[in-house]
Simulated scan of single mutants.
Amino acid sequence: MSQIPDFIAVIFDMDGLILDTETTYVHAWQQAASELGYTINKTFCTSMSGLSFAQVEEKFTEHLGAAFPLTEFYRLSGERWRTIAEQEGIAVKKGAYDLLQVLEESQAPFCLATNSPEFNARECLRYAGIEDLFSVIVCRDHVLQPKPAADIFLRAADLLQQPIQSCLVVEDSLTGLLAARNANAFSVLIPSITEIDEQMQALAGLVLNDLCELSLLLQGK
């Protein structure tokens, strides 16, 4: 594994990185679309990884047409998603607990920084049973612009009381990597359900397979 630069704090994305929420979103979206007479495949769904609500809405309209009933779709998909989450919970990604323990033992501050609104983010954390693990959470409704703008990461660094250049940003999506670049932060890419393309490879300061690898690297710092 490659070396990682010196850092003081760590900023984590949530969906697809700490939590396996994307799988539940895909299932709920496909169920809701089917009930409305539309078909959406997994590739289309995963292409929205890391996007904000407004960006997701735009992609649905582009893909399915202006007549697509977005309001009804969001109502149905929300109901289907909560049914899935209540029955199955939301899985915590492999290595997350060990990694957070490493950071706590080294007294390195960390936080979540997500394009999700705060209500939805806390709901996901609750379904995953880890709502108490993050004392600092920065969400879409806390800033002017979502990722790929720098706002969310800059706000996170401010709350952690560290310059952004002293923070590691850990992401799983192109949108998050672009935001890290715009914030002038070093990024660690741990891909989830999207394949790494050349742009992602070029943007990432470091590419790892999972949170376990990052945990091992940080233990050696």
Rank of each mutant, 00 (worst) to 15 (best):
A32W: 00
A33C: 08
S34W: 00
S34V: 02
E35S: 15
E35Y: 08
L36I: 09
Y38V: 01
I40N: 08
I40S: 06
N41L: 02
K42T: 05
K42C: 00
T43I: 14
T43G: 03
F44I: 00
F44A: 00
F44Q: 05
S47P: 15
S47V: 05
G50Q: 05
G50W: 12
G50N: 09
L51T: 12
S52W: 11
F53H: 08
A54K: 02
V56S: 05
E57P: 04
E58R: 12
E58A: 12
F60L: 15
T61K: 09
E62Y: 12
H63K: 15
L64R: 11
L64C: 05
G65I: 11
G65D: 10
G65M: 14
A66W: 06
A66D: 15
A67M: 10
A67I: 14
F68M: 02
F68Q: 13
F68C: 00
L70M: 15
L70D: 00
E72F: 02
E72H: 14
F73D: 13
Y74E: 09
Y74W: 11
R75T: 04
L76F: 10
S77Q: 15
G78V: 05
R80V: 12
R80W: 12
W81A: 12
T83L: 15
T83R: 13
I84W: 08
A85D: 13
Q87K: 13
Q87A: 12
E88Y: 12
G89R: 09
G89A: 07
G89S: 10
I90D: 11
I90E: 07
A91N: 09
A91Q: 11
V92Q: 03
V92A: 04
V92Y: 07
K93S: 01
K93R: 14
K94H: 12
K94E: 06
K94G: 00
G95W: 07
G95F: 13
G95S: 07
A96P: 04
Y97N: 03
Y97P: 06
D98Y: 02
D98V: 07
Q101E: 10
Q101A: 09
V102T: 15
V102W: 06
L103M: 11
E104P: 03
S106Q: 15
S106M: 13
Q107G: 00
P109C: 08
F110C: 06
C111E: 06
C111G: 10
L112D: 02
A113P: 09
N115W: 09
S116W: 07
P117G: 05
E118I: 04
A121W: 08
A121M: 13
A121D: 03
C124M: 07
C124G: 04
L125Q: 11
R126Y: 02
Y127N: 05
Y127K: 05
A128E: 13
G129P: 00
I130W: 05
I130A: 03
I130F: 04
E131D: 14
E131N: 11
E131C: 03
D132E: 12
L133N: 01
S135C: 02
S135I: 01
S135P: 05
V136M: 01
V136R: 00
V138S: 06
R140W: 01
D141N: 04
D141M: 03
H142R: 10
V143T: 09
V143E: 02
Q145E: 08
Q145L: 11
Q145Y: 07
Q145W: 02
